[in-house]
């Protein structure tokens, strides 16, 4: 493993050492936990920010893509194609090493990560909402129009309330994906869970493996809490007697 990027042999050593001195090491881990939890605050902010960004812009884009005029639909399709097809890490490097370093234009890392991940999530969320909008029977739009509603009113008060309900499972999925993607933010110096985990692992080489496992457990717990909340929301706004949502 000489010259390899990752120090495997060191890690295997650390692993056996960890169990040789289990009591002390567990104690040390508990002491390090608050530092990791500090990072989880930033992770939650990044995830919530990106999800809300994606909701705010993804929803209107989906409406344009389903009901809008052709040229606008194409523009949305191009946006979606670009952001679904480009890795988040590439976009992050473009912003950080392009904008920040070359142009010497700098702003908050957390905001930058929220912006990039939010724009990517906008693309994915617009496709979740598009599917939901298209699954609402066309007759309901006709029914609304026949009462004198404008298309805007009909979409806002008839179609969207139903489409949003149907979107919750897709949205839950997007949440768990974004949460994991947020780990990429450490690559550009954002102080979230992974960046703290890496810092601690380097400082406490013998505990590296345990620290990464701990980080993984924190991700799992945040995932479960979010999914649980969304499932509750879904049950709360369920339409009585209606089987799909």
């Amino acid at each position: 493993m000489q010259g390899s990027f990752f120090p495997y042999s060191i890690m295997i050593e650390a692993f056996s050492e960890f169990f040789a001195n289990l009591g002390d090491n567990l104690l040390l881990l508990v002491k390090l936990l608050p530092v990791l939890l500090k990072g989880s605050g930033i992770t939650v902010i990044v995830v919530a920010g990106a999800m809300l960004f994606g909701l705010t812009f993804g929803l209107p884009l989906s409406v344009v893509q389903v009901y809008g005029p052709k040229p606008l639909r194409w523009l949305v399709s191009i946006y979606v194609w670009f952001f679904r097809g480009t890795p988040i890490l590439v976009l992050l490097y473009l912003i950080f090493f392009g904008l920040f370093w070359m142009l010497n234009f700098h702003f908050n890392e957390i905001l930058a990560v929220i912006l990039i991940m939010g724009m990517t999530s906008t693309a994915y969320q617009s496709q979740i909402f598009r599917g939901s909008l298209q699954s609402i029977p066309a007759g309901q739009l006709k029914g609304a129009r026949s009462l004198g509603m404008s298309d805007f009113q009909a979409i806002r008060s008839i179609i969207l309330p139903q489409a949003l309900r149907i979107s919750i499972p897709g949205w839950s999925n997007e949440y768990s994906i974004i949460l994991k993607d947020s780990a990429l933010a450490y690559a550009v110096g954002c102080k979230e869970i992974m960046s703290y985990a890496k810092g601690l692992a380097i400082a406490n080489g013998n505990l590296a493996l345990a620290i990464y496992i701990l980080a993984g457990i924190i991700y799992l717990i945040i995932t479960i809490i979010g999914l649980w909340g969304l499932r509750r929301l879904q049950r709360k706004i369920r339409i009585p007697g209606y089987s799909h949502a």
Partner: peptide, 10 residues
């Protein structure tokens, strides 16, 4: 009035 009602399901 439509054949399949077109009520608002929500």
């Amino acid at each position: 009035i439509f054949q399949d009602f077109n009520l608002f399901d929500h």
